[in-house]
Design a protein around this nucleic acid. Structure first.
Ligand code: MN
Ligand code: MN
Ligand code: MN
Ligand code: MN
Lengths: 216, 216
DNA sequence: CTTAATTTTTAGACAAGCCAAAATAAATAT
DNA sequence: ATATTTATTTTGGCTTGTCTAAAAATTAAG
């Protein structure tokens, strides 16, 4: 059917496409996939040949209906497996992404659906990302970035946009997790770092970090 | 590390090696792997280069200590995943083998160990095959073949040696499953087919089928 | 023991993915 | 509008795993 390489490309295109009309460029992909621009061009042509993307030379690609369906299916599997690992096997949220990168390629529709049932139809994965339904429907997370809050404003952390081990370990160290109520105490104008109150402790976090935290 | 192809070859060599001294031939492998003899030769050389097998030209291969460890690790993962699929996701025993063929290639030692813990350290998989421990220890199933029983002898079905969907669906149709008490009523000398009593029903099964059923 | 049949290896090719360097198109600056 | 910079594609080559056909070794038969 489709190779793992193809699946990974589709997923990456999906995550880079902010709106369905936007074309994803060769370099953006090469950057995301940690690979060579020429490799990306070749894969673009291949995916176009399979009607998974629309490809215009020198312009980039956008997902076809079919390609989008595939991409969302990958996201669904990835997030269901992450949820399984945390909820059932007691992994912590920073350990699951890499394993899910492998598990998402297991090909069995019925397995995915049974897993979802076993997990009790979770709406969000361990990082607060919404889990697409078997029909490909996807809730929109309506939180706002921590960087958008003003002083004295507060909210609950509902989503992290970076699932890397390094980032999540940083949050662990600062005792920050999903569901925490966070209040902005001060904003340093020079570097836009933010002093926050986490109910129990105060921390100063960089803009870089804050950009990846979504609150409601 | 190791490719899926390498892992599959090691597992196949392990299953063809009746005793650790026995050399597995190129054609036996080609037959098992549904591939070409020349492909097998090339993989034998490659595995020998990685010290996973001892290879003597024109003689065949046997697993090295290292190769055996790898092979048993694959078997362990395969059987744990099959158990998961049946015990937790309510698959039936004929549906799990092909999915486990994919899942066994997921690389994460800690995942395997956590899965085993989650399943409560099962000793046997859904087909009655023993599950190797994390140290590679493996119980020996000490059942005897149904074909070895004499008339009026009986036993409990504890293991099936064929995990293919077709074979297991046949057993389902005859209402035969692990744990069933089976008694030999008659043996047809001409084709060695066996009439059995399953407590509730009587069936005639071919020698071909009977060879794959192990009783205690 | 010598020939015939079978098994195994070698040789030459091919597809999938990848990369580095060269060529070309597009975007930007002057 | 032209020159320069940047992005993209093309070209040639490499690795893994596969296949078919031919050659060589082993085994079986007479
Ligand atoms: Mn993830
Ligand atoms: Mn996630
Ligand atoms: Mn199996
Ligand atoms: Mn099994």
């Amino acid at each position: 059917m489709h190779s793992q390489a193809e699946e990974n490309y589709l997923k990456a295109i999906y995550s880079l496409q902010n709106n369905p009309r936007q074309e994803v460029s060769t370099t953006a992909m090469a950057d995301k996939m940690q690979t060579n621009a020429s490799s990306v061009t070749e894969m673009f042509r291949k995916l176009a040949g399979k009607d998974l993307v629309h490809y215009r030379k020198y312009r980039g690609v956008q997902l076809t209906r079919q390609g989008k369906t595939m991409a969302i299916s990958m996201v669904r599997k990835h997030r269901l497996w992450e949820t399984f690992l945390v909820e059932k096997l007691n992994f912590s949220w920073e350990e699951v992404h890499d394993i899910a990168e492998q598990l998402e390629h297991i090909q069995s529709e019925v397995l995915t659906d049974r897993l979802e049932h076993f997990l009790g139809y979770p709406k969000y994965d361990p990082h607060g990302d919404p889990i697409p339904s078997s029909k490909g429907e996807l809730l929109k997370v309506k939180g706002k970035r921590l960087t958008e809050l003003k002083i004295e404003e507060e909210g609950v952390l509902i989503n992290v946009k970076d699932s890397s081990e390094e980032f999540l370990k940083y949050l662990n160290k600062k005792n920050l997790g999903l569901g925490d109520r966070i209040k902005v105490i001060a904003i340093e104008p020079f570097d836009k770092s933010i002093k926050i109150d986490n109910n129990t402790q105060e921390h100063v976090i960089s803009e870089q970090i804050a950009k990846n935290l979504y609150l409601k």
